[in-house]
């Protein structure tokens, strides 16, 4: 890499706790601008907490999150919403909404009190519907969509918000394999148009394939961060997920691919 990437969103010495327990213990995580950053780790390692603190939804007990150099918690809510989009894990839509209704709500931070929907609002909504491939479904009620379609509608809503940075909390949960890849490919498309993307992922192999930058977390701390090809090896998988594995190059992309070894696998291999 010739020059270090500009960073628009960065956590510095971030400590976040619920009550007595500190979930994040002084982490430094930059989200490189114009890249896809994936945050991975075992359950309850603090990866969702990190993402939610990035999105200004949780207040740190110590340390800060900087958005374009300014402390995010001192910025007005609406201003943050114009620069930073966030999609929570499997949100439940209110009843009686069409896809288009939902996507329109993403325009909220750009709308003034009492002002009617503008031409720009409509243009951005159309663009978001097209970009996510749900324009044919725009008049369909959300409750009639498949899981993959609905997830794309939610992403379209976050896109209509028209922010340079987009954070997503496990957007592939509850989707089948084809739909998972569909969502991830969509994120790559969006990234190629210049968006910075931060994403929490369950699947390490997906993260290795799709992310430029990987943050591996372990019990509230950053275990390793960097390009997947540079940091992912068998030691990392053992340390972060507590799992023995073989890490081989992905036959399709060449990125690291983790093949887990369970407790009983070696026994099965033994000749009878």
């Amino acid at each position: 890499m010739a020059e270090p990437h500009r960073v628009s969103l960065r956590a510095e010495q971030l400590t976040v706790g619920y009550g007595e327990r500190d979930v994040l213990q002084g982490v430094d995580v930059p989200l490189p601008s114009g890249q896809i950053t994936a945050i991975v780790g075992a359950n309850a390692c603090g990866k969702s907490t990190l993402l939610r603190t990035f999105a200004r939804l949780l207040k740190p007990t110590a340390g800060t999150v900087l958005l374009d150099g300014a402390e995010i918690h001192t910025l007005p809510t609406r201003e943050v919403a114009q620069r930073l989009g966030f999609l929570p894990q499997s949100p439940v839509p209110p009843e009686g909404l069409t896809v288009e209704d939902l996507v329109h709500r993403g325009r909220f931070p750009h709308q003034k009190l009492g002002r009617r929907t503008s031409a720009e609002d409509r243009a951005k909504v159309d663009w978001a519907l097209t970009a996510t491939g749900v324009e044919d479904l725009r008049a369909r009620p959300l409750d009639q969509l498949s899981g993959g379609q609905r997830q794309r509608a939610w992403i379209a809503m976050a896109l209509a918000q028209d922010t340079p940075t987009l954070l997503l909390d496990e957007p592939t949960t509850y989707l089948d394999l084809a739909h998972q890849l569909e969502v991830l490919d969509l994120l790559v498309d969006l990234n190629e148009q210049g968006r910075t993307i931060g994403i929490v992922l369950h699947d390490l192999n997906h993260a290795c394939r799709y992310a430029h930058h990987l943050v591996a977390m372990k019990s509230g701390r950053v275990y390793a961060a960097g390009a997947p090809g540079e940091i992912v090896d068998e030691t990392l998988v053992k340390q972060v997920f507590g799992l023995d594995s073989r890490v081989i190059p992905d036959p399709v992309t060449g990125t690291p691919m983790c093949v887990p070894i369970g407790r009983t696998v070696s026994k099965l291999r033994e000749p009878a």
Binding site: L57, A81, F86, P94, P109
Partner: peptide, 23 residues
Amino acid sequence: ILAIRRLDVLMLDDDLSRALGLQ
């Protein structure tokens, strides 16, 4: 009536409505 858009956003989800710029 002035708050209709706020009602729409508030319906979504607490995290989401905050991420959309609603206090």
